[in-house]
Design a protein around this nucleic acid. Sequence first.
DNA 1: AATTCGGGGGC
DNA 2: GCCCCAGAATT
Length: 357
Amino acid sequence: MDDSWPGKLLKWFKGNRRDLPWRQNRSIYRVWVSEVMLQQTRVDTVIPYFHRFIEAFPTVSTLAKADQEDVLKFWEGLGYYARARNLHRAAEVVMERFNGVIPDQPELFRQLPGVGPYISAAVMSIACGHAIPVVDGNVLRTVCRIFALEYDIAQPATRKNIAALLAEKIPENKPGEFNEAMMELGATICTPASPGCDGCPIRHNCLAKQKNLVSELPIKSRKRPVPQYRIVVAVITDSSGRMLIQKRPENGLLGGLWEFPGGKVEKGETLPDALKRECMEELAVKVKVGKEITTIRHAYTHFKILLTAFYCTITSGTLTSYLPFRWAKMEDIASLPFPKANHKILPALREIKIEVE
DNA sequence: AATTCGGGGGC
DNA sequence: GCCCCAGAATT
């Protein structure tokens, strides 16, 4: 019998394992894709994306051959688009440097774009049997409670400390199951608010429970408040009703996605003046700012926006931009990767078009 | 070590 | 509203 908590945890996991899509066929590719999607994203959110992505790109080879824009379209709405760009590039690296075979050694796999300490440990343990502990948000919280650790989980160093601690506990013969069990416990029982200690398989091993510190742990330092920005965008239509959209730079926020031209309103600037300035800066044209279309709110991770869209008409100049731009019909937009904040404009756009006609 | 990266769900 | 989520890359 195994009375240590890892033993109890594994036994519990055997009988309480959720049947998730990426647990049905454990190829390295499928586990890898799932872990990239699961980064900072809930299981329930990922499931439909995983099915669609695997159907479209069933192998690393098909992914490597795909256009980045198509990969981004399958990622649309999932956020953190660098994950998709890095996964796509990594697939190309696998084809070019590894003869199309995803490396099963941690030192090699870890070097692929978008593969950090967590994804490396997760894929290498779950799909390849390497005894490397994962440290995600669930594990940070759960371990701090099991050992009543008053670490600040917002500090990067805490991840290293907990990884070192778990390296002593992870069973050599079942590393993947142990890692999944730790995360499963954190996701379903040892939750951030009101954890289900009564149903916890290792409650008798939990120091936080013994010391009545469960609701106090883990400790996390707070981040600074997020700023709000005022944004304006232009809906410029040509004679046949198509709209001008442009592609964002490859890197940075929403990299590689399409959107309506526009930008931040500067201090002391009116909304129309800001829009005229942005159109001149980005597209080298003078515009007349017409009817207001709609105003929407949207929250990103570290700032919020209040965005107003206006119909605009080009009065002079020749469209010029260092970024790709194109005229798009509504159905074109539907087939391109388009950020959520811009999607929020579209319903109001349809209504006004009907009015005009 | 701190910042920058989405979007949704729970409370 | 705020918090968190199967984190990585950049500075």
